[in-house]
């Protein structure tokens, strides 16, 4: 994957963020027309506040929060991708941070800054089991009550039952895992 050139606006934003957070910004990359900025997990909340409130950045819309489970590297097992969009500047930036594997992986909630993050964080919690500190109502949102395990983790089986066809229709469906 070749690195694409940064546009002027993106360069400015990157510079502002680097000045403000210094060591917290660990790198950046650009694929096609999309800039990703890698940060350490401890500056996430301050960065979100900065991005929303400062005029230089002015990211008024938090588009999405996505969690990815990289099961092969426990040090950085859970990658969280925060998708910020600025309507005035018309620029989209993906902020990426990682959470190491542990009993209760956790990260600071940005719900106080972006109220729209409420359900997005609850969904990430529901699907990946990442706890968001400071979230006012962190409950499972989608899976049934009493569900055990975190469905979007890679070690969670996709299904429990072998499909029934005509050759095994008389037998009860076998349990895969």
């Amino acid at each position: 994957m070749g690195q694409a050139e940064l546009t002027k606006v993106e360069e400015e934003i990157l510079q502002v963020l680097q000045e403000q957070f210094g060591e917290g910004i660990t790198g950046h990359s650009k694929f096609a027309d999309q800039l990703s900025i890698y940060i350490t997990d401890d500056i996430l909340f301050e960065l979100a506040r900065f991005m929303k409130e400062e005029d230089q950045t002015d990211f008024d819309l938090l588009s999405d929060i996505c969690g990815v489970d990289w099961i092969d590297c426990p040090e950085q097992r859970f990658e969280l991708v925060y998708n910020f969009y600025s309507i005035n500047k018309n620029v989209r930036i993906l902020i990426r941070t990682t959470v190491p594997d542990s009993e209760t992986p956790s990260i600071r909630s940005i719900q106080p800054v972006y109220p729209g993050a409420d359900w997005m964080e609850r969904e990430v919690y529901d699907m990946l089991g990442i706890e968001f500190e400071g979230h006012p109502d962190l409950q499972r949102i989608i899976t049934p009550e009493g569900m055990e395990g975190w469905p979007h983790r890679k070690d969670f089986p996709l299904t429990y039952e072998a499909p029934q066809f005509s050759h095994n229709k008389d037998n009860p469906p076998e349990i895969i895992k």
């Binding site: 469905p151 969670f156 469906p173």
Partner: peptide, 8 residues
């Protein structure tokens, strides 16, 4: 949808 969420 043969998966964990759907009743077969």
């Amino acid at each position: 949808f043969n998966n964990y969420a759907i009743l077969q």
